[in-house]
Design a protein around this nucleic acid. Structure first.
Lengths: 338, 338
DNA sequence: CCACGTGATGGGATCGTTCCCATCGTGGTG
DNA sequence: CACCACGATGGGAACGATCCCATCACGTGG
C-alpha cells in the first residue's frame, strides 16, 4: 500500500474508469449520472479512501464553508461571563447538522481588530456572527460595506439595519422590577450594563417602565452604570448605598453584577432579601450559586446562539432571505433573593 | 468607483508595472526584489486595497494557517466547566501574534466525531489541539496515523507518545492532602475525576501519596469517583458520608466537584471547615464564590492553553522540533474551607 | 429513414496563488 | 575583451477542484 500522496479527483476518476467531471457530479449529488457510473465512483472513493480537497473547491466556488464568531474581549470576560460559553454552545449545536466550521475570534485590542479586518476583507469566511456589539463598534459597518453576511446577537439600536436576534430585554427587566414592586419594595435601584450597548439601555428602560407603571418617579440617584463584571457590580452597589442608604431593592442587569452586589451587601451586613431584595438577569449558572440563590430573568443564551446561526446560514444560502430580526422571550425565575 | 471584483495579484502586477512573481515576492518578504520594484508594488497594493487570496495560496502551499481546538463535550461541560473557557483564552492569546486562525470544534456524539474525522483527513487545518482526552479516545490515534501535528493538554498515560503539556497533578494533589494532614485531619476522603483520564488517576495518586507520607493507610471507602461535574460532586459526597460518616476532610479533584460537595455538606448541616475541611483543584472562578471560599490547588489553565499552542506552532513549523512534554507547576491557595 | 431532443459523459478553461526555471543585464576578473 | 557569477525579473506549470460546453448514444416522431 501506499502512495504517500493523497488521492485526487483524477485518481478516483481513473480508478472508476470515468472522467473527472463524473466524479465531481457524484460528489455533489448531481442527478445527471448513471447508476452504474455512480456505483463505480463510490467504490473507487471507498477503496482509495478519498476525501475531496476543500481548499481547491473553495478556490473555484469561492465559498469556505466556515463562519466566524467574533467575541470582543476587551474586558477579558470570556470565562468570567458565562454568556459567551453559552453562545458558543448554541452556535456549535446549530452547525452540527451542516458541514460548516466555526472560527472563533477573540478581539482584545486594536491590533487584533486590524488583523480581523484584513481576515474578513480576504473573505476567508462565508459569514460572521457578532456578539456584544457596542454602539460605536466599527465592525458592523465594515461588514456591511464588505457585503459579508452578518448576524448580530443583540443590536446597536432599535432600528438596527443588520440581521439580528435579541432578547426581550425591556420586557424582562420590566417583569423583574414589577416583581419587586409586588413584593412591596418602593426604593428600587438598578445597576445597569454599559450604556453604549442597547442591552444596557433596554434593561434600564424596563426598570423605568415598571416604576412608571407603579406610579413611582425614577430617581437618577438610584441608577448606577456598570460594565457587566462582578467587580463593576460591587462598586456600583457601594455607590448606590452611599447615595441612597435606605434603598430596599436592586435590579442588576446581569447575574454576574448581581453577584458582585450581593457580596457588597453581605459585607455591609445588609440581609438579603430582608433588608434589600436583589434581582439579576440571564439566569446563568452563577445565579444558582450565590448566597442566597438569585431571582433572575431567564434568557436562553444557547437559544440565542442557535438562532443567530440559523439566520446566518439562511442569509448565506440566499442573501436577503432571512428574517431581519428575531425576538427571544424571557421569563422570571424566582429564587430566594427577593 | 470601481470593479466589483476583488483585485488579484495580476491586477497589482499590472498596476505596478511588474510581473506576478515580483508581487508575490514582495508579499512573502523575499529579499530578491529591488527597492524600486518593492515600492511600486506596495503602492499598487495600497491603492487597490489588495488583500491576497489565502485560499489560492493554501492550494499551492498546502498550508491553511489555521489550527483546530477539539473539545469533547459529551457531558456538555463547556460553560459549567470554566476549564475550557480558560483554555480558549490561552490559545487565542498565543495565536494573537501570528496569522493563524482558531477553529473550535465541539464533539458531542459519534456523528460529530465522524464529521471531525473527515474534516481532519481532508487536512483542513495545519494542526490540532486536543483537550480532555480519555484513555480510549480514538482521536489521538487517528491523528498520529494522519501525521497531523497534534498537541494534547493532559495525557493519556505517563508514557504519552504525542506532544503534550500537563499540570503537576500528582504534586498538586499531594500538596493539598498534605495541607489537610497539617491541619490535623486524619480521615481524608477524595472525590476523583474520571478514572479513564490520566488527570483523574494522577490526582488520586497524589492523594494516596500524601496519606502514605503521613503514615495513613488509604481506605477504599474514602474514594468516590465522579466526573468533574457539580452534580457528580454532590452525589459522590453523599456516598462518602454514607460510607464514612466520621470523615473530617475531602479532597475533590476539581473546584466544580468541590462546590457540589460543599452544597451537600451544607444541606446536611456539616460545618465547613469545622466539621469537614474541603480542598478543590483548579483555582477556577467558582473557588472564590463558594461558601466558604475554597482552598484549592491552582493550575494556570490559560498558561496551559498558551503552552500547547506554542508547542503546536513549533511542531507545525518544524515537525519533531518541539518539546515532547512540558510540565506546568501548581500551587496551593489557602482560603476558608480548610 | 432521418432529424431531433435528451440524458450521460468528458475535456478544456478557470479560480489566484507559489514555485521552478529561463532570461537578461551588469560589474568584476583573468 | 571575453567570460562568468549573481541579482533581478517574468513567464509557464502546477495545486485540485468546479463549470461550461461540445460530443455521443439512443429512442422517438414525422
Amino acid at each position: 500500500m501506499g502512495d504517500s500522496r493523497r488521492p485526487t479527483i483524477k485518481t478516483v476518476a481513473a480508478r472508476a474508469g470515468v472522467g473527472r467531471t463524473t466524479v465531481s457530479r457524484v460528489l455533489n449529488g448531481s442527478p445527471l449520472v448513471s447508476p452504474e457510473a455512480r456505483a463505480a465512483v463510490m467504490e473507487a472513493i471507498a477503496e482509495l479512501n478519498y476525501v475531496p480537497n476543500s481548499v481547491a473547491r473553495s478556490l473555484v466556488t469561492s465559498r469556505t464553508d466556515s463562519i466566524a464568531l467574533v467575541i470582543p474581549e476587551s474586558e477579558s470576560r470570556l470565562g468570567a461571563e458565562p454568556y459567551f460559553s453559552a453562545i458558543i454552545r448554541g452556535v456549535s449545536l446549530q452547525l452540527a447538522t451542516t458541514r460548516v466550521q466555526l472560527l472563533l475570534t477573540l478581539v482584545r485590542d486594536q491590533r487584533e481588530l486590524d488583523r480581523l479586518t484584513e481576515f474578513l476583507s480576504a473573505r476567508r469566511v462565508d459569514g460572521v456572527l457578532l456578539v456584544s456589539v457596542h454602539r460605536d463598534d466599527p465592525l458592523p459597518g465594515l461588514l456591511q460595506e464588505l457585503g459579508l453576511p452578518t448576524v448580530l446577537a443583540g443590536r446597536r439600536s432599535p432600528d438596527e439595519p443588520l440581521n439580528h436576534a435579541h432578547s426581550d430585554n425591556v420586557g424582562g427587566a420590566t417583569e423583574a422590577v414589577r416583581h419587586l414592586l409586588e413584593r412591596g419594595r418602593r426604593s428600587i435601584a438598578t445597576i445597569t450594563g454599559p450604556l453604549d450597548m442597547e442591552v444596557g439601555n433596554s434593561r434600564l428602560q424596563g426598570w423605568a417602565d415598571a416604576l412608571a407603571e407603579g406610579g413611582i418617579e425614577p430617581d437618577d440617584a438610584l441608577v448606577a452604570p456598570a460594565d457587566f463584571t462582578e467587580e463593576g457590580g460591587r462598586v456600583a452597589m457601594r455607590a448606590l448605598l452611599e447615595r441612597r442608604p435606605a434603598l430596599d431593592a436592586v435590579f442588576a442587569a446581569s447575574d454576574v453584577m448581581a453577584a458582585g452586589a450581593l457580596a457588597e451587601l453581605n459585607r455591609r451586613g445588609r440581609r438579603v432579601p430582608d433588608d434589600v431584595a436583589v434581582v439579576g438577569f440571564d439566569d446563568s449558572i452563577v445565579a444558582r450559586h450565590t448566597d442566597p440563590p438569585l431571582t433572575t430573568v431567564r434568557q436562553s443564551v444557547e437559544e440565542m446562539g442557535r438562532t443567530i446561526t440559523r439566520l446566518l446560514l439562511q442569509e448565506i444560502a440566499e442573501p436577503g432571505s432571512a428574517e431581519k430580526c428575531v425576538l427571544l422571550p424571557t421569563s422570571l425565575v424566582v429564587r430566594d433573593s427577593t
